[in-house]
Design a protein around this nucleic acid. Structure first.
Lengths: 254, 254
DNA sequence: ATGTCTTTGTGAACGCGTGCACAAAGATGG
DNA sequence: CCATCTTTGTGCACGCGTTCACAAAGACAT
């Protein structure tokens, strides 16, 4: 998994644990798949298997939302889809801006899974004047000079940062000042934001490093790294079960 | 953050907690930045601030690696960079294959932050015959028919899946059968893998949904959703502190 | 050498998340 | 209406992760 919670005092919002919130989208995806197959009800056991979690955990998660199941039967798929969607705030439209239209930004802009989840790419913003006006994914790129106006005109509260690390904090500050209160950060930097602003971070490099750690453990051990030979301070390394909407990865062209 | 741990029995590898492992790359990035500014030593307080964590947590994390600090002074930057790199297995070369060269796969292939961390894109693989031979990021795309041979010839143990969800499990199975034991999955699907194989998942859609949840909490509450009016089952919704290498987000062209 | 001052390393307490195991609830059949 | 069977909802215990707070360790000055 490529996630990491940033700047979140583990504040349990109205009794729903953060860990549960993080799993709701997972359940929702599995449920939507069932819904498309016109499955009327599902047991916690089946749904848990589809979502890849423990069934007891799933039931406990749902218990935070209320008692939506029927004992002896299971959960009504359609009803549960609605309840989770509502809880996640997906029944409303969320305009989103993407800042930094490089390779990644463009890939994000092309992602088709936004709309089906209530997210709408309201604008693409880049600092490069040469990009301005050029359409990406059918949306013309706008220059970052107009960032504040774009945010306000569209009532945007969620921003995606896909700029180089050096620009991320500055972009973040402007987004926040303009009214954005939730940020998804792809830049490899720790963003500092005022209280009340949520930041979530996606960092491929970190994910790979975590995999490498475990990989080393699996492969190694017998390789017996010379633990004794500690280097001096100068010895630095030179260093098919298809989702409903999401038939594509998070970032995929149509 | 766009991460989610998948299929990991919280097995504490040789005493290093999983949560600590997930933070090591963060420390490493901060340390590398200090190293580039030729800062010789750093205190836990300073480093923690740079990495965006609590200083006590950082010290405890480091304590799992050993006693690398000097009381009254702090940590030797270069030495710590080396120790963490070694612990994460970044002192060796990790050949990686990317399967699914769509928008995202291409963006990943162009990511420059791989090499500086010991990761090397050994091959790009796609199922589309039209893609075969076409260079992406200077690397010719190979057809998925040759997947097994590519894995084995290059000694690849880490695979990145950037295919549509429908193909992900099948690709995963083939990767695993060919010898891959760590997978970074960008497809919105729960992958099932045998024991001994690590899977980490990156899902943009989930991250946005989590943000939407908190956003709704912040904006809402007074919006007073009509909780009483429960819909029938049919009422479904229609639905600049620059990192060293990582001057770019995880996925950015050179 | 002695004292002071800074910073590490960690013992201990606390809180969250997980999973077990079971009682309560309801469906279903006779 | 009663018995049986399935599945939920949850009380409880356990373990991991976080944080506090402080003793131990060393640098540095005198």
């Amino acid at each position: 998994m490529a996630t990491g919670r940033t700047h979140r005092p583990a504040t349990r919002s109205r009794g729903i644990p953060e860990a549960t919130v993080a799993r709701l989208p997972l359940y929702l995806r599995a449920l939507t798949a069932l819904s498309e197959r016109s499955v009327p009800t599902v047991s916690s056991e089946e749904l848990a298997a589809a979502a890849g979690v423990n069934s007891a955990k799933l039931r406990k998660d749902f218990s935070y939302l209320g008692s939506y199941g029927t004992r002896g039967v299971g959960y009504d798929v359609e009803y549960l889809v609605y309840q989770i969607s509502r809880e996640l705030g997906l029944t409303q439209d969320w305009p989103v801006v993407i800042v930094g239209i490089g390779n990644l930004g463009a890939a994000l802009a092309n992602y088709g899974g936004f709309a089906s989840r209530g997210f709408r790419v309201a604008a693409l913003i880049d600092a490069d004047p040469a990009m301005a006006g050029k359409p990406v994914a059918g949306i013309p790129v706008q220059h970052s000079d107009d960032l504040e106006k774009i945010i306000q005109d569209n009532g945007v509260s969620i921003g995606v940062i896909a700029t180089p690390a050096g620009a991320a904090q500055q972009v973040c500050d402007r987004l926040v000042a303009a009214g954005v209160t939730s940020i998804l950060n792809f830049a490899p930097t720790v963003l500092s934001v005022p209280d009340g602003v949520d930041v979530r971070k996606v960092d491929l490099s970190i994910e790979l490093q975590i995999l490498a750690f475990h990989e080393q453990r699996k492969a190694g051990e017998e390789a017996a790294s010379g633990d004794g030979a500690l280097p001096t301070a100068a010895a630095r390394s030179e260093s098919a079960d298809q989702g409903p909407d999401g038939d594509m990865p998070a970032v995929m062209p149509a």
